[in-house]
Amino acid sequence: MSVEIKQPRGLAHATSRIVLSADQPTGKAPMELFITDEHTEQYLSLQVGGGSDRGMLTGILGGICSSLCLVIGSWMALQGRWEAVIWPVVFGVPLFLAPFLWETLRPLPLPILFNRRTREVYFDHEGTLFHCPWDGIQAVAREFQIVGPYTAGMKNASLEIMVHRYQNPENALMVSLGSPAGKTLEMQKGFWEYIRSYMNNGPWFDKDGNHSNSDNFVKMQLSANIDQSQLLDHWRQTIAEKKAAADGENYLSGIDALMFLGHLMFYPSNLIQNLTYKIAKKRSRNRWPNIVLERLRHNGPATRLID
Score class of each variant (00 low, 15 high):
H164V: 01
S223V: 10
Y267D: 13
G190F: 01
T40H: 01
G209L: 00
E160Q: 13
Q47S: 07
I226K: 13
Q47H: 09
K155R: 09
A280E: 08
P289Q: 01
A257Y: 12
I146P: 10
Q221N: 00
G300D: 03
N274R: 00
P111H: 07
H298P: 12
G182H: 09
K242E: 13
L105D: 08
L293E: 07
N216H: 09
S212F: 01
L177Q: 06
G59W: 02
A14S: 06
S284F: 11
E170D: 12
G153V: 06
K281L: 09
C65N: 02
G50P: 07
Y166K: 00
E193N: 03
N225M: 01
S253L: 11
R297P: 06
A246P: 05
N299H: 14
W204K: 01
S214L: 02
M199K: 03
Q221E: 05
L231N: 12
L101M: 05
Y150A: 12
D37H: 05
S253R: 13
N200H: 02
C69Y: 08
H234R: 15
H39A: 04
A29T: 06
A141H: 06
I255E: 13
C65Q: 02
S284E: 10
I86N: 01
P99T: 04
H211A: 04
S197W: 00
T104D: 04
E4S: 14
S2D: 10
Y251C: 06
S197V: 00
L159P: 11
S67K: 04
V90P: 02
K243M: 08
V163P: 10
I146R: 13
T40D: 03
E249W: 03
V163F: 07
E41M: 02
D208L: 03
L78Q: 09
S179W: 09
R116F: 03
G248C: 02
G80Y: 05
M174G: 14
L159C: 09
Q167T: 07
V71A: 15
V218Q: 03
E38Q: 07
W102P: 07
G209F: 00
S66P: 11
G62F: 09
Q221H: 00
Y194D: 02
V89I: 11
Q167S: 07
P301Q: 02
V3S: 11
F266A: 13
I226F: 11
D233N: 14
E249H: 11
S74P: 06
L177R: 06
V292H: 05
R54K: 04
L275R: 10
G202A: 00
N299Y: 12
K281T: 10
M154I: 15
T104M: 04
S74V: 15
S52E: 01
D233T: 14
D247A: 07
L271A: 15
V89P: 02
W192T: 07
L173H: 12
H234P: 08
S223I: 09
R9Q: 11
F114Y: 15
I195G: 06
I64P: 05
F100P: 04
A257W: 12
A245K: 09
F205L: 00
T151F: 14
V121K: 01
Q221T: 01
V85W: 01
W288A: 08
F114N: 11
I18T: 15
V90Y: 00
W75G: 15
Q188H: 06
D23R: 09
G92V: 09
N200Q: 06
S66D: 09
L261G: 12
S2P: 08
T118K: 03
L105M: 13
Y251E: 04
W235F: 15
I64W: 04
S214N: 05
R17C: 05
A12V: 08
E160D: 14
